[in-house]
Design a protein around this nucleic acid. Structure first.
Lengths: 327, 327
DNA sequence: CTGAAAGCGCTAACAT
DNA sequence: ATGTTAGCGCTTTCAG
């Protein structure tokens, strides 16, 4: 059996209360001699605190649960790094619960799991909640914050990049390079996708370009979504494309090249993300770069009640995937 | 205050024991009528079970902790998928603890965290343990298994690809394509790296090629490690390279292209991993492909005592990054 | 500075 | 089928 404070108490002759105090470092409530003796015996016995028991009596935990929707793209690592960094600084542990990809049952279950573990806060990453999820979250008294998804509801906390701006800037960049037939590929039907669509459409409109519905190719931010869009784009003679993710951009470029196009001459691409994939792809992808670490950090801030930036700005990173278009 | 079984007991008039029984679905120990009443009140009150309390009294949890070393490459997602899949089938939850990259303090702390939470098992992914880690793990009575690292110690459980074979096959493939000056880039000094080095060296030896120490460029499996190796390789006129990861391979190819080389004519590359990066890179990377999902599944099996495959076989996937070499 | 005692929310004998 | 009771390992008054 694992040793408990009782064993230490028996061994040292102190009461369990005293042992508890030194182990919890309640300073000023025990003498140095007592402390040394307790610590020594604890070490000898190979004592490990039972966090479960502690959390039960304290009725609080120092753990933040991150529930992540596993999108078929690769942006999440940076965010998790940021979360980890800030959480550690605040003395919180981080546990990550994977919820599959757009899997309602798993997603709901993950929220319940987090709630039943009495975590101190819940971060929902790339998650689109349904009514039940939202009810569950609001009824519990656990703080929560959506990450990388902006639900466009003032009452619900979220931290994400400015999706509208991201798409707007990407589209404008292509327009500034002479493109007039501009696609948007890989976005989904949810909040993030819709916001990017709005930004894209606004940029077209502000520049007096009459967009076509077919220029928007829906998808799931994946490499495959990019590949699949190439043929349609070729048929409609699109010259520049805003891709919803680096993965999607890479897929589109690859399909174009396999079909004999010379890039970026025959097709310009701007991706949204700015991960290492941009450097790996050929030509290197010009991107709207998200500040993932910052998003992670701010989301933890949001959770602990500090006022956090809810819309993290994006920046443009020029690489080699866009070429000036001349008729 | 959150409602507890006490509240349900008070409301229904039953004892807490009965409430506990129906909530825990101890079938046969309560009537249908009782169950309906209890469940109804539980729902009305918005009752959520306190997992902490349950785990404390049961002295066991149904959670597997995955401690992951964040390597600067991208192989881990597939493994986690496999772990998740198998764990869910076994009724276990999965929590993931990030331990930074080769950060001894964080790594040790993560093990302690897992132990103090009384998890049912610990999976250590891409982790190189030191003496203290190993002592901690063996002294606790918690099952553990190393994943994607083979410690070459019969007494310590691990599941990984056959690193020796992976490097051997990659090297032989290049030799079969006429290469004689073959590099190995991106490996580290730890077990995985050493095992791959052995396989590489054995393949050279078996084919009567006298290797040079400088053909081996150490690294950390990163994109940057690949980039950094290009110049040295160019100077020593290496014609084929085995890369320790897809990321490293991509970095090497990119550096070569930036320096004006035509690939794969001027340099052939085989990578070890076989992730989507292989398709994104240009030319698409021929790879020794690891079965990540299988590794994840087997590692969970290993934990729960089923006899698991400890060395998961790799396969060769031909793409476009290797060209026949002729003098 | 230390100890005794009362729980945290739940489960598991042991009764009935 | 249900209730009573005794904890799980820890923290925290309240006394002294």
């Amino acid at each position: 059996m694992k040793p408990t404070i009782k064993d230490i108490a028996a061994e040292t002759g102190f009461s369990i209360a005293t042992v508890s105090r030194v182990l919890a470092e309640k300073r000023g409530s025990y003498s140095d001699k007592t402390r040394d003796r307790v610590l020594k015996v604890a070490k000898e016995l190979g004592y490990r605190k039972n966090t479960l028991a502690m959390e039960l009596v304290k009725k609080k935990t120092d753990v933040i649960a991150v529930i992540v929707n596993v999108t078929p793209t690769n942006f999440s690592n940076g965010i998790i790094d940021g979360i980890q960094e800030r959480a550690t600084a605040l003395g919180q542990q981080v546990i990550i619960l994977y919820a599959g990809n757009r899997n309602h049952a798993l997603q709901h279950q993950a929220i319940i799991t987090a709630l039943e573990r009495s975590v101190s806060g819940i971060l929902l990453m790339a998650i689109e909640p349904d009514k039940d999820d939202l009810r569950l979250l609001t009824e519990a008294r656990t703080p929560f914050c959506f990450v990388s998804v902006n639900l466009a509801d003032e009452r619900i906390k979220s931290v994400s990049s400015d999706n509208y701006q991201a798409a707007y800037q990407a589209t404008e960049y292509l327009i500034a390079h002479g493109h007039r037939r501009i696609g948007l590929v890989g976005i989904d039907q949810y909040h993030t996708g819709s916001q990017r669509r709005s930004g894209y459409q606004a940029a077209l409109k502000d520049n007096h370009i009459q967009g076509k519905a077919s220029w928007i190719q829906m998808g799931d931010y994946s490499y495959q979504a990019g590949q699949a869009a190439f043929k349609p784009y070729q048929q409609m003679a699109v010259t520049g494309v805003v891709a919803a993710s680096d993965m999607t951009a890479a897929g589109l470029q690859k399909a174009a090249q396999i079909n004999g196009l010379e890039l970026p001459m025959a097709l310009s691409v701007v991706s949204i993300d700015g991960t290492l994939i941009c450097d790996i792809a050929t030509p290197a992808l010009t991107s709207i770069t998200q500040d993932f670490t910052r998003i992670g950090i701010e989301s933890v801030n949001c959770l602990v009640g500090e006022n956090a930036t809810q819309l993290v700005p994006v920046t443009l990173t020029e690489r080699d995937s866009v070429m000036k278009y001349v008729e």
